[in-house]
Nucleic acid binder design. Sequence first.
DNA 1: AAGTAGATACACT
DNA 2: GTGTATCTACTTA
Length: 235
Amino acid sequence: MGGGQLSSAPLPRSFFDRPSHEVAPDLLGRVLVHGGVDGIVAVRLTEVEAYGGPGEDPAAHTYRGRTPRNAVMFGPPGHLYVYFTYGMHFCANLVCLPDGFGSAVLLRAGEVVEGLAAARARRSSSNGKPIADRDLARGPARLAVALGLTREHNGLDAILEGSPLGRPRQSATMLEGVPADPSLIRSGPRTGISTAKEVPWRFWIDGDPTVSPYRAHVPRRRNTAATSVGEAPRS
DNA sequence: AAGTAGATACACT
DNA sequence: GTGTATCTACTTA
């Protein structure tokens, strides 16, 4: 099956020239297309999170200013900020506000609407069990895998004329798609962060099966040679 | 359905 | 050295 046609136009760069918490809900229902060497995959966004700028959002990578890792977030809007975390995962963001600011929207989950075969292949599990289609891009690291986004795509411009369908290598385009019904948009606290827990900058489409389950931050206790004197390990 | 452990590498203090 | 914008597998219901 060739699936559907991706007929919508690219979003203009001006779409991202706003604070990330205004861009974020407007991104729901939009489509990100990425062409990799092993196929082209498009994802319709169903869940996102906004992260603010230096000094204003303790949960943002830019909170303490510019570093080599977060440099892309301080660049022009509409580019991909892809970072590596937990020793094994990549997560993708779209940069907001003009050059010099430092904010972005984390792409947390979506529905694969094109390139189902390529997405399945990239997400094929180690135990050989097939992955449900709704789980292909359900979670930020899974979404990055499904789209084929890794470290090398950090800084890639997602505002391009035309879709990457004719340019299957190394190009991404953020399409207009069909904006989510405003009455279905929900917001709440962001997932997995240890600071600014109360800021309701996570946005999702209510009832969509591809939205990831909310998980609060869990401080990971290091293995400090649990042979502590006298004290039994508490659970 | 819900909880938790373990994996893993890197940025930043 | 410490903490992490996570995921999978495995456990107990």
